[in-house]
Write a protein that binds this DNA or RNA. Structure first.
Length: 295
DNA sequence: AAAAGACTCAACCGCGGAGAC
DNA sequence: CGTCTCCGCGGTTGAGTCTTT
């Protein structure tokens, strides 16, 4: 079995020398060209026929995570983040399975998102990721936040290009979001809509069962994503992509002050407080907004 | 302006399953 | 049935970048 040479460690036997590390433009071109000719799969053979000194695994990874034309770039949208949270609560670290529900997103990207954003937040709150408290935090704080963000986006999207990136990006063949995602976001947006009729949310957020999934099995419901409940939202999702050009890294959970939540067991279970006191306040960075002591 | 620390994400690694022989 | 190879997945690493001090 050939062992990849480490960077800087030379090998006299050229045929066993394998490159590692970042891919060059030339390598990318070779791989793309070869896949265009032969298609995906048979990665070891592909690597050889392309003349690449890479393992088949490396070629596969490069293609799937970076070169494949339908890969989306940019930050995950609130909808995507919400879906990730939801699916992770359902499936755990099944990244590839989760990625199948997010067209254009790779398992690697989702995994990175989870580790760098979600788990980081859990660490900062001294919540063990995957614990019930963590699930609570996701459900009672982060999901509603994302739903709120979705609502804001959807209300402003009519005058923005946020939801229309797909049609503008003719170079990239982006598949439609799965019907399940449309279904899901319909339901999720409906949750938001239900509560945005008032200026105050409460954290119960009509997640009916404390530990059961708030949106039970929304993914295999229908082949038709069209929703009668929220046509405008569905429409957006049928149009797809939702690549948000705004470089907003704060869609996620950064800035949430869950200290009381993480510290006070009495708040665990049925925490009661408003989490959306002010629609005009930029919720990211409003640490005090989340301070239970103030309630 | 520079150093230190934090963060991101592309890429690698090891493992296990599937299929061919 | 055992062995080998390929493929795909999840976990991990580390270089580059960004932010903070």
């Amino acid at each position: 079995m050939s062992i990849a040479t480490k960077p800087g460690v030379g090998s006299n036997e050229e045929e066993t020398e394998l490159r590692r590390g970042p891919w060059t433009l030339e390598e990318d071109s070779l791989l793309i060209h070869c896949i265009a000719l032969h298609g995906e799969g048979r990665w070891n053979m592909l690597a050889k026929s392309a003349g690449l000194k890479r393992t088949g695994k490396s070629c596969r990874l490069r293609w799937l995570n970076y070169l494949k034309p339908d890969i989306k770039r940019g930050n995950l949208t609130p909808q995507e983040q919400l879906l990730i949270l939801e699916l992770h609560s359902k499936w755990g670290n099944r990244w590839s399975k989760i990625a199948q529900r997010l067209p254009g997103r790779t398992d690697n990207e989702i995994k990175n998102y989870w580790r760098t954003r979600v788990q980081k937040q859990a660490r900062q709150l001294n919540i063990e990721s995957g614990s019930e408290r963590f699930i609570d935090a996701v459900r009672c704080f982060w999901m509603p936040r994302l739903l709120q963000k979705m609502e804001q986006n959807s209300s402003s999207s009519s005058s923005s290009s946020v939801m229309n990136m797909n049609s503008q990006n003719s170079a990239i063949n982006v598949p439609s979001l799965s019907p399940s995602l449309g279904e899901f976001t319909d339901i999720a947006a409906n949750h938001t809509r239900t509560h945005t009729t008032t200026t105050t949310y409460n954290n119960n957020f009509d997640f009916p069962d404390h530990y059961s999934l708030p949106l039970q099995e929304p993914f295999e419901i229908s082949e038709n994503p069209t929703s009668t409940a929220l046509p405008q939202v569905s429409e957006n999702y049928n149009n797809d992509v939702c690549f948000n050009p705004v470089q907003d890294h704060s869609y996620g959970m950064e800035g949430l002050n869950l200290e009381p939540f993480s510290r006070t067991e009495s708040n665990y279970g049925i925490p009661k407080f408003d989490y959306c006191q002010s629609s005009e306040s930029e919720w990211m960075g409003e640490y005090s907004l989340w301070n239970l002591d103030e309630m």
